[in-house]
Write a protein that binds this DNA or RNA. Structure first.
Length: 303
DNA sequence: GCGTCCAGGTCTACC
DNA sequence: GGTAGACCTGGACGC
């Protein structure tokens, strides 16, 4: 957040079972632009695009409240929509009471409710989450960061602070530009097709957050999008508030093998079978178990 | 510095 | 339904 411009502060009241740092740092999204995280100040920054207005913002804890800092010149009629966007990114309106009740039943899971864990940072739009997930497939995290950074630099609206590109901006691009300048490689045609389908209205991706479709049908819908296999679809579901799928990748397989198999490789079917007992929350419990060591390292003061 | 190998998910073709 | 190979990039490694 540029400090040279006058800022104004908007208070946000989080729900009682909310933990700011665990929500922000619970997976890697905070490191992908337009998000950025200042660990010294404990502040998450972002850039919103609301009705054609590009708005840099920053949020951090201030006592029991959260303090959202925005440019003082921000029009009053955009303040509530911006607060709603940030609340949605931080999953503040998601009801995790049932999830936390379930985790209290097992001694090994009580830390989850005790530390108010379970919310996973997401982007302002499903489109942004989907493109970013595509950028995580079959590559290192460093390459994912490069891809997203270049997409924002190349197509993101704004001067200086850039928001994530709209579907239309990417749709107007070309496979060649996405391949070379944004380093998407063979993912370029997948990203282009996704952007074009969203831009022309044939894929109503934003409705996925509120659709009444059963999760299995929504999963099948996501799988029909090119480039979205079991890993990408399962993890996109988590960002839509559905936790019925695990979204296995090589890192969590290795982590599971370390935790449950003394380092020996364990089949996906065995992992799936193990988590079936947790019902519709299994994907979230799985992710929190796999990353518990992050919680113990990053959040030692609370865990 | 250069070449080779490998890891990382998904798609397609094939059995 | 299961499997092999291709896709692309960057890092590790050997020379």
């Amino acid at each position: 957040m540029p400090q040279s411009r006058p800022l104004t502060t908007l208070p946000i009241h989080p729900p009682g079972d909310f933990d700011f740092r665990r929500t922000v740092l619970g997976h890697g999204w905070y490191a992908l632009p337009p998000f950025r995280y200042d660990s010294e100040r404990g502040a998450l920054g972002g850039v919103a695009s609301l009705g054609g207005t590009i708005i840099p913002w920053e949020i951090r804890e201030q006592g029991s409240l959260l303090e959202l800092r925005v440019p003082a010149r921000l029009a009053p009629h955009l303040r509530m929509p911006l607060k709603a966007t940030v609340r949605s990114c931080l999953r503040m309106d998601e009801d995790l009471a049932e999830f936390h009740r379930q985790t209290r039943r097992l001694v090994s899971h009580r830390w989850i409710a005790r530390t108010r864990s379970g919310r996973l940072l997401r982007a302002p739009t499903v489109f942004e989450d989907a493109v970013k997930l595509l950028c995580t497939t079959n590559c290192t995290w460093a390459l994912t960061e490069t891809m997203v950074k270049r997409l924002v630099e190349e197509f993101g609206p704004g001067d200086g602070a850039r928001a994530f590109p709209s579907p239309e901006a990417i749709a107007r691009s070309s496979e060649r530009v996405l391949r070379t300048r944004c380093t998407l490689g063979y993912r370029a045609p997948f990203a282009l097709e996704l952007a074009r389908r969203v831009a022309d209205g044939s894929l109503e991706i934003e409705s996925w957050r509120t659709t009444p479709l059963p999760t299995d049908e929504l999963y099948a819908t996501i799988r029909r999008v090119k480039g979205f296999g079991p890993y990408a679809a399962g993890n996109l579901l988590k960002l839509l508030g559905r936790y019925d799928y695990l979204g296995l990748d090589s890192w969590v397989r290795a982590r599971y093998a370390t935790l449950h198999g003394h380092g020996r490789k364990i089949s996906d079917a065995t992992i799936e079978r193990h988590y079936k007992q947790y019902g519709r929350w299994r994907g979230l419990i799985f992710w929190l178990e796999m990353t518990r060591h992050w919680h113990e390292e990053k959040f030692r003061r609370q865990a």
